[in-house]
Design a protein around this nucleic acid. Structure first.
Lengths: 188, 188
DNA sequence: CAGGCGATGTCAGCGACTGCCATCGCGTTA
DNA sequence: TAACGCGATGGCAGTCGCTGACATCGCCTG
């Protein structure tokens, strides 16, 4: 049992989610997370900037996926259509991870500190989307607004998807939300 | 020099904004804020829940103003029209506070921790707006989406308004953003 | 003038986070 | 094969945000 078990970062993330579920985020200390992963508190902070970040490791990849899909949309597609293509790609990436997504979502929803972190991740995503749209020739403020709208559609759709009783695909729920936004905002 | 100078809470807020501007949020300790206000660290935490909250004391009033205006919109007004009325009311409340708004905004924009707090305040505002719209008979997900869109319009408009070189009224900039959103999302 | 009461001060302590240095395990190279 | 470099980890001390418990102060009321 060497000092270096493989995948220290992943073990920390797994231990953290477990403990946050079991006894709550605030009642869990970093030392406890590290202990369950067979590491020390100091090492935890070498892998994750803070106690919250351990739940948000995948967001960079999600952003990359979203922006790539938007950039790859047909050149003649309207901004909102390009965003819709990005939403499809992101939704597809959640296939087979429903249970993980649910557990993670409810931990975050239960803690104000974690919701704050989630919101800034989504804001960063919106910024990246806006930049991608600008690169497609969309002017401001349309680029920023369309990006914000796209993220809002994803967030609200995601929340509906993880709610108990919902059994449709994530993509389907998100599509419905996008249609709802068009109706609500577009109708004069 | 009694123990109780008037308006301890206001003095703390003033001292905090000054220090955050002078040397930055992270380089300022709560003890320093309290010291400048002639109080102790412990007393700071009796007035504000944490070091961030001292910059967000006005948000509750802003939310009240916004939702009241939405609720007071003509019954036959479409959801987005009611939100537009709320935006007008909120914009008007910034009259004469341009300089304060600017200083506060740039401090927040410069610090990730403060941006997080701002985002959750805006999210709370969006929730309250959605609830107000539902009370007007707007169904989900239109209520939530319209509320999100309204907050995004305000935020983006506000950012443009505080930017150097901008000399129009806040209300005017926000109106322009709302029109931009309609065009971007409504155009199929 | 006594007592109540709210605002403040004092103190001890926990937990998040950081800097610094020592240690360990592995691969490279002479 | 032995010395070396190097990245990952541990240990430790220290700062700071934040909290609970208790004492103190000043005002107000009876």
């Amino acid at each position: 049992m060497s000092r270096w078990q493989p995948d220290a970062k992943g073990r920390l993330a797994k231990a953290a989610l477990e403990l946050y579920c079991e006894r709550g985020y605030e009642q869990t200390t970093v030392a406890e997370i590290a202990g369950r992963a067979g590491l020390t508190e100091r090492t935890f902070f070498r892998h994750y900037a803070d106690k919250r970040e351990v739940l948000f490791d995948g967001t960079a990849a999600l952003q990359e996926l979203f922006t790539s899909a938007v950039a790859a949309a047909p050149e003649e597609a309207a901004p909102i259509e390009a965003v819709a293509a990005g939403l499809e790609a992101v939704c597809a990436s959640f296939a087979g991870r429903t249970e993980f997504a649910r557990r993670r979502h409810f931990v975050i929803a239960a803690t104000a500190e974690l919701r704050e972190r989630e919101l800034i991740k989504l804001a960063t995503l919106a910024s990246a989307l806006a930049a991608t749209l600008r690169r497609r020739g969309v002017p401001e403020p349309a680029a920023g607004l369309t990006a914000e709208a796209g993220v809002a559609v994803f967030r609200i759709g995601f929340e509906r998807w993880v709610a108990p009783g919902e059994d449709r695909e994530l993509a389907q729920v998100v599509r419905e939300c996008l249609a709802g936004l068009r109706t609500a905002v577009g109708a004069a």
